[in-house]
């Protein structure tokens, strides 16, 4: 459909570096829109967007909703608890029903990897992946990139993702995005929470968080799902914090100033020390602010546009 990104945003793995840079560059002016007294532009006026959340996610949904409203789109939120999904409707039927309602875009969060592609293959509307299982969470990856770029050029920057990489869609999107923009990427965590063959993606592996901190310019701390203990991946929260926690004491021994990121919501005292989260190196709230700008950019770039008319329209535009 629209040329720059294609019909959908399903992940960063299959985007080019130029496409990712286009999104980040487009996000810059959108940061300013959110600073205006009237935080609204009419770019997506008349567009209908459904936020389809099969998993609870307050902050991602709110961020998307702000982005949509600031672009003047009409939005409908569908949460799993109130939807027909719990009544046994399949994703295929959900897709067909959405399509029948003539919507323009779907923002979907789903517990199964590949669910966003599944939906995108079956509907004409654009699909934005707001997190599919353990696969990707592209807008989180993009907002992390934008946040790093606010502070330093991404190319050549050393970024270490610390924590439960195995179950993390945020980690995967970050890895693809960072590699495509020329960063050096590492992961660190208990081996039971690092996926087999992760090195093949082009990342280094650190077994100890101290080594990761000594190496990195940026530490992206992942949330530890507390259910990982029950499923036997780690012995206890206390032990995790003692061995892998990003603490002030560990950061003080870092050879250089680090940026500390966290996709949220944080477990203070589990994967991250409160003093680090609230400290001078933390850009965690900048990430939240950038989330809205990046999502506006993605929505804007995916919206509308019929390439075959674009050429004709150029002559009729205002020059």
């Amino acid at each position: 459909m629209s040329g720059a990104l294609g019909k959908d945003l399903l992940g960063l793995e299959h985007l080019s570096g130029d496409q990712i840079r286009l999104i980040l560059d487009t996000a810059e002016p959108f940061k300013e829109v959110s600073e205006r007294a009237i935080k609204k532009v009419p770019a997506l006026r008349g567009k209908t967007i459904v936020n389809l959340f099969f998993e609870a996610s307050t902050r991602t949904r709110i961020s998307f909703e702000f982005a949509e409203k600031r672009l003047s789109a009409d939005t409908v939120n569908v949460a799993a608890s109130g939807s027909s999904v719990v009544k046994g409707e399949t994703l295929v039927d959900t897709a067909r029903n959405l399509e029948a309602m003539r919507i323009d875009m779907v923002v979907m969060r789903h517990g199964s990897s590949g669910a966003a592609k599944f939906l995108a293959d079956r509907i004409v509307s654009s699909v934005i992946n707001a997190g599919d299982g353990k696969h990707e969470h592209p807008t989180q990856g993009l907002l992390d990139l934008l946040t790093i770029r606010d502070h330093r050029p991404i190319a050549g920057t050393k970024v270490c993702i610390v924590g439960d990489v195995l179950h993390s869609r945020v980690a995967r999107s970050n890895i693809w995005g960072l590699l495509k923009l020329g960063a050096e990427v590492a992961v660190c965590g208990p081996a039971s929470l690092l996926p087999l063959g992760i090195e093949a993606l082009g990342v280094q592996v650190f077994r100890r968080v101290e080594e990761a901190i000594a190496w990195a310019d940026v530490i992206n701390v992942l949330r530890l799902q507390l259910e990982r203990m029950q499923t036997g991946y780690i012995p206890s929260v206390r032990e995790y914090y003692r061995v892998f926690g990003v603490t002030m004491e560990r950061l003080e021994r870092a050879p250089r100033d680090l940026l500390i990121m966290h996709p949220g919501p944080m477990n203070r005292g589990v994967e991250i020390d409160s003093r680090v989260a609230d400290g001078p190196h933390s850009v965690i709230l900048n990430q939240v602010t950038n989330g809205v700008a990046v999502r506006m950019a993605v929505l804007y770039l995916l919206a509308g546009g019929k390439p075959e008319l674009a050429e004709a329209a150029k002559g009729a535009s205002d020059r």
Partner: peptide, 23 residues
Amino acid sequence: LDITLYRDDLEVVGPRPLVGPTH
């Protein structure tokens, strides 16, 4: 003023790169 976001022809021309900030 960057008027890109206020154009009435997004459907026709597709989204364009934003040329500059509004300030």
